[in-house]
Structure formats: C-alpha cells, structure tokens
C-alpha cells in the first residue's frame, strides 16, 4: 500500500490567526456589506400612471378569477366572466388603445426596459466586484504555502486549483492553500448570513449567481418589456373562455356526511 504512509507537515499555529481568521472575517463582512449595498442600490419603485396601473391590475384580476374560480358559485362566476371577456377582447383596459396591433417597442430604446437592465447590471456588479477583489487579495497575500489539511480526501484533479502556487508534485491533495478556504467560505457561509441578516438576505454570492441564471423566476413584473399587453389580454380572455367551471360546493353534502360518520 503506497497510501499507508501519511504525510505530516508541521505548521505554525500563527497561520490560523493571520490567515484563516482574517479570510473568514473578511468574507463575513463582505457578505454584510453586499447585503446593505444591495438594499441601498435598489431603486425605489417608480410611480405608475393610473392607466398603466389599471392595465396590470385588470389583467391580474382575470388571472385571479381563473385561479380561484371554484370558490365562486356558477352564476357569479358567469357574471364576472361576462364582464371581463368582452372588455379584454375590445381592449378596454389598455394603457393606450391606439397602440393596439402595433409592434412592441424595442426593449433597448424603451425607458422602462432600460431601467430593468440597469437593475440587473447593478446586481451583477455587486456580485462580481467583491468576488474578484477578494480572490486577487488572497492570491497576492497568501499564496505559495499550505495552510491546512482537509478532513476528507479529494481526487487529484483538484490539485492545481487547491494547491495553486505550491510547486510540489507529490504532496497529498488534502493539504490545501488559502484559496480553498476561500471557496469553502463561499459555499458554507449562507447559514451564518441567515442568522445574522435574516432569511431573504442578499449576502451570498452563490445565491445571487443562481438568481442571475434564471431571472424569470424572481419577482419580475407582470409585463416584461417588449411584450404586447393586448396579446396578453386576448390570451387571458381565451383562457377564461375555455375554463370548465366547478365549485367546491359540488357534492359538499356527501363529504360532510362522510366526515361526520353518520351514514
């Protein structure tokens, strides 16, 4: 067994006080800074004019009606449907009815679209800048020596990443340099931020990157820029039209008797 021989390296305990703890503290503080920076950078929601507000709200009303149709009785559902569908189809709720049928504005020139892009840019910056800064700080200050031993083995593939700057061929991959402590912090600090900052914090870089991958999943507006509101109204009218209505009160007597065990 070639592996039976374990390598031992005697390290100065001062390594911990001058490398491990500073990196951890810096990572935590950066997370807190990121959180408050994001809070500050968030633009205040823009005031919407009454027509635009009516447009979004009336579309939302249709969607809510469709989702909660079982709560309504048949006649009241029918009454709401009879009001909403013709209004949707005639474009009664549109912000400017004259723009109906025209091609949507180019998202690059539309001011609302620009604002959204700026918000995304800001988020990007808040992620990228601290990450690059800390990586280069660690690389320039603490590279070239081993600081700790991981408690679990890794494959040889990680050697070039985790032992960067240490030019020893035969050293076990479990001995790692400071950069890998940085990576461990990057992944593992989320729970600590949850305790410091509350649950929906913006401190974690990994979470922020995940959110960038699928921006649609977030709390995006109902109307994405470049989408024709008239088309959305027509779609919603069609959805309501084909909805097969049923109420929760169907068969309620049997269910009640079943629950009471009277039969």
């Amino acid at each position: 067994m070639a592996q039976a021989l374990t390598q031992t390296i005697y390290r100065d305990p001062a390594l911990f006080y001058w490398i491990l703890f500073p990196i951890t503290v810096v990572m935590i503080l950066t997370g807190i800074l990121r959180h408050y920076g994001t809070v500050l950078l968030q633009a205040a929601p823009k005031k919407e004019d009454i027509k635009g507000r009516r447009e979004t709200r009336s579309l939302l009303r249709g969607i809510t009606l469709r989702n909660n149709a079982p709560v309504l009785s048949r006649s009241s559902f029918q009454a709401r449907k009879n009001y909403i569908i013709p209004a949707y189809q005639s474009g009664q709720f549109l912000k400017d009815p004259d723009a109906k049928g025209q091609p949507p504005p180019n998202p690059m020139t539309d001011p609302a679209g620009m604002e959204q892009m700026m918000g995304m840019m800001k988020g990007n910056m808040a992620t990228m800048i601290p990450q690059t800064l800390i990586m280069s700080w660690i690389n320039s200050f603490f590279s070239g020596f081993i600081i700790m031993k991981l408690p679990f083995p890794l494959t040889i593939r990680f050697k070039s990443m985790l032992q960067s700057g240490v030019a020893t061929r035969d050293l076990d991959v479990r001995w790692v340099s400071s950069l890998s402590w940085y990576f461990l912090n990057l992944f593992g600090l989320q729970s600590i931020f949850t305790f410091i900052l509350g649950n929906d914090n913006a401190a974690n870089q990994m979470a922020a990157q995940m959110a960038q991958m699928n921006p649609g999943a977030g709390a995006g507006g109902l109307f994405a820029p470049g989408q024709d509101p008239d088309k959305m109204f027509q779609n919603e009218a069609e959805n309501l039209e084909v909805l097969e209505h049923w109420t929760v009160l169907d068969g309620v007597e049997e269910r009640l008797l079943d629950d009471l065990d009277i039969v």
Binding site: R11, P13, L15, F16, L20, T24, I147, M148, K149, L150, P151, F152, W181, L184, N185, F187, G188, L189, Q190, S191, I192
Partner: peptide, 20 residues
C-alpha cells in the same frame, strides 16, 4: 445538502484548529 456546506466549513475549520 444546504446544511452539508456549512458542515464541511466548520468541520474543516475545527479539524485544522485541533490538529495543528
């Protein structure tokens, strides 16, 4: 899996501190 990340973090830290 989320907890595993923080587990590895503190595990590594204390393993290093104790065995240094």
């Amino acid at each position: 899996l989320n907890g595993l990340m923080s587990f590895v973090l503190t595990w590594t830290l204390f393993f290093g501190l104790v065995s240094a």
